[in-house]
């Protein structure tokens, strides 16, 4: 049986354009997406909006780790979010959307539902 991949992938930039342990923001289908490259080359994508300040700034946060979880800290008031699940690790119950992201032929692609 064949499963159709119906997700719409959008090319955002070249992988080399991403600095290790920093984020960039992209406009994908009207959504602001924050894309992060960690030190090992893995990619993560979250909504760019910081739910605490209502400002679109998460892509400008500091990337790091808490325990084994890769994280980003909001540059506004420093709440830490998991790059894997989007959950806020400082404020249980708060989370931001996460998006799929991949590299194809050196291009970074994001899928926004």
């Amino acid at each position: 049986m064949t499963v159709l991949d119906v997700r719409a992938w959008t090319v955002v930039c070249r992988f080399d354009r991403l600095l290790p342990e920093r984020g960039v923001a992209a406009l994908v289908g009207g959504e602001q997406v924050a894309i992060f490259r960690t030190h090992d080359g893995a990619l993560f994508a979250l909504a760019n909006r910081d739910p605490f300040s209502d400002a679109y700034v998460l892509s400008r946060g500091i990337v790091g780790s808490r325990g084994a979880v890769p994280t980003v800290a909001s540059p506004m008031h420093k709440q830490v979010f998991s790059l894997v699940t989007g959950e806020c690790l400082d404020e249980p119950g708060v989370a931001v959307p996460v998006y799929e992201v991949r590299v194809r032929d050196g291009d970074v692609e994001v899928a926004v539902p």
Partner: peptide
Amino acid sequence: VVAGPTLEVV
């Protein structure tokens, strides 16, 4: 500003 358990986890 909305910050609370109502936010969806994707």
